[in-house]
């Protein structure tokens, strides 16, 4: 990894930490308040691509593990990995990777804005919602003995907020690509 890539990942990790310091916002039609931190995970993928995005998220989790209260709500320390919802935390790594990988595959600079936006949305939705929930729900079901069905139903309240975040991530991903393109091109 070049020094520039390392610095980009570290800078993005700092952005994810700062997004966690912002107060959660309540939106009318969504049952639970949403935090900006998991938006940061999708953004890491759409802006930096698979490799650097994954490293950025790994760095955030490393800070958590060594005892810095960098998760939203001032959570941190190894205890953050002992919660029934810790699968979502571990899933962040794979969410950023899949979002980044799909972004690299689906989006090229020659496409029109609409196609790029749709590609980013699909990438953020697959990584940040489908993959993330697969990890979160599996962990929740296994660690608590709730069973998959109950764990799935219990997590549903958070899905609308995360779909909305995927949408924001898609628009932001395109805007950053226009302003300061960093996404590696595979397609």
């Amino acid at each position: 990894m070049s020094t520039r890539d390392l610095v980009l990942a570290a800078l993005f990790a700092a952005i994810i930490v700062v997004l966690g310091l912002l107060p959660p916002i309540a939106i009318g039609f969504i049952p639970v308040p949403i935090t900006a931190q998991s938006l940061g995970v999708m953004l890491a993928g759409v802006v930096l691509g698979a490799k650097r995005g994954t490293v950025a998220v790994l760095l955030v989790l490393l800070l958590v593990a060594i005892g810095l209260p960098v998760l939203s709500g001032g959570r941190g320390g190894l205890a953050a990995f002992a919660a029934p919802t810790s699968g979502f935390l571990i899933g962040w790594v794979f969410a950023a990777f899949v979002t980044g990988y799909l972004s690299e595959r689906l989006i090229s600079r020659s496409q029109t804005g609409l196609v790029q936006g749709a590609g980013f949305f699909l990438a953020a939705l697959t990584g940040g919602v489908v993959v993330l929930y697969a990890f979160g729900i599996t962990y929740l079901a296994l660690i608590t003995g709730l069973g998959f069905k109950q764990a799935f139903l219990g997590s549903l309240a958070f899905v609308p907020g995360d779909v909305l975040k995927a949408f924001v991530a898609a628009l932001a991903g395109r805007a950053v690509m226009v302003g300061y393109p960093l996404l590696p091109q595979r397609a």
Binding site: R4, V7, L8, L11, F12, A14, I15, V18, A36, L39, L43, V47, V168, L171, A172, A175, V176, G179, Y180, L182
Partner: peptide, 18 residues
């Protein structure tokens, strides 16, 4: 708005990487 805050924040921050 989330978008008008996040985009300049990302671009400004990442531009210092070099």
């Amino acid at each position: 708005r989330p978008l008008t805050l996040a985009v300049p924040l990302i671009i400004l921050t990442l531009k210092s990487a070099d």
